[in-house]
């Protein structure tokens, strides 16, 4: 992606491999690598919600963890506001790392396990303040109540423990904790996947409101295309550690070009009994990321496979303005046809 002035986060050829070891007492033999993420590049603009979509094991969470250096990347560069942050994290200068941690925050998938059960909500929300000390101690309490109200909780919730809350309320606490340090950027990893359907909308709306109010940039990770369509401005589709397609949300949903994107879109059940969508059922299952298929990783399951697909890896190219695609034989474009 080209670096425009407004690009907040830029990921360049990010690769993350997890070594697989044989079990052993003292010496372990390396058996191979899980290719979680392979040479992935993309950029996120300011004030944008960038969606990362794919099925389990496609590497979307790994990317977010690498961006926030919860996992050190194997190779590749990540720039945040033009600074190479993997370098900063690797060098580990405390003040620089803390400054970055303040600007970038993470919302975890499971609000049941991401809050310490032994701490009150007040302690949880004030922990970032204690760590960063960016505002004077006398204001911590006020700031905490302000954050609680901002995410739609009440003052009396501060004294409660996480187990006294429902999933949706816990996720609000998680969001308040992330907001405590005034971040510019938040990576949200499936923030509504473990919530009841009737409270998902509340959290999605909250995230959108906060973006408008505070100008936050989101990296939104999900397997659920319907929430992605609702909340994201641009979307990247991942398959087995690779990005196969990036486009503006409307463009991607209305004019998908990669056969995997098309299949993924057609697989979602639409709550309308009259619309009997024609499903493209992909044969088989996602192959093991330890030995991914050569060349195009999707070719063993692809309905539009041609000879070259198993020989040459398709590069990610801009096929239309803002629409990037890695495919030798894309789905016929509705736009081009009409």
């Amino acid at each position: 992606m080209t670096l425009t002035p407004e690009t907040v986060l830029e990921v360049k050829e990010l690769t993350k491999h997890f070594p697989v070891y044989e079990r052993g007492v003292i010496l372990r033999r390396k058996l191979g690598d899980v290719h979680a993420v392979d040479e992935v590049s993309f950029g996120i603009r300011k004030n944008e919600t960038f969606g990362l979509v794919g099925e389990s094991g496609c590497g979307k969470t790994t990317i977010a963890k690498c961006v926030l250096y919860l996992e050190p990347p194997t190779s590749g560069k990540i720039f945040f506001n033009g600074k190479n942050i993997t370098e900063i994290f690797k060098e580990g200068k405390k003040d620089l790392v803390l400054a970055l941690r303040r600007q970038m925050q993470y919302i975890f998938q499971n609000p049941y396990s991401s809050l310490d059960p032994r701490m009150t909500v007040a302690d949880i929300i004030m922990e970032p303040l204690e760590v960063h000390k960016h505002i004077p101690r006398s204001q911590w309490q006020n700031r905490m109540y302000e954050l609680l109200r901002m995410v739609g909780l009440e003052d009396y919730h501060a004294e409660r423990y996480p187990h006294e809350f429902s999933g949706g309320q816990r996720q609000r606490v998680c969001i308040a904790r992330a907001l405590a340090v005034d971040p510019q950027f938040i990576a949200a990893d499936e923030p509504v996947a473990s919530l009841d359907v009737s409270v998902r909308a509340q959290i999605l709306n909250l995230l959108q409101e906060l973006q408008q109010k505070l100008g936050i940039t989101y990296l939104y990770i999900s397997h659920d295309l319907s929430t992605v369509r609702h909340i994201c401005h641009r979307v990247a589709v991942m398959y087995l550690g690779k990005i196969v397609e990036i486009a503006e949300t409307d463009e991607l949903f209305e004019n998908p070009l990669h056969p995997y994107t098309v299949a993924l879109l057609s697989a979602i059940p639409v709550p309308d009994p009259r619309k009997k969508t024609h499903r493209i059922i992909l044969p088989g299952e996602v192959p093991s990321p330890v030995n991914p298929p050569p060349a195009c990783r999707f070719h063993p399951r692809c309905p539009r496979r041609i000879d070259i697909c198993s020989k040459v890896e398709p590069p990610l190219l801009e096929v239309r303005p803002g629409h990037w695609l890695a495919c030798h034989n894309p789905w016929p474009s509705k736009r081009l046809a009409s």
């Binding site: 319907s226 929430t227 369509r229 609702h230 879109l265 979602i268």
Partner: peptide, 14 residues
């Protein structure tokens, strides 16, 4: 209240 692929709305009803 459930996001619907077919219809994109500005805000979900809650």
């Amino acid at each position: 209240s459930v996001p619907n692929l077919a219809l994109r709305k500005e805000k979900l009803s809650v």
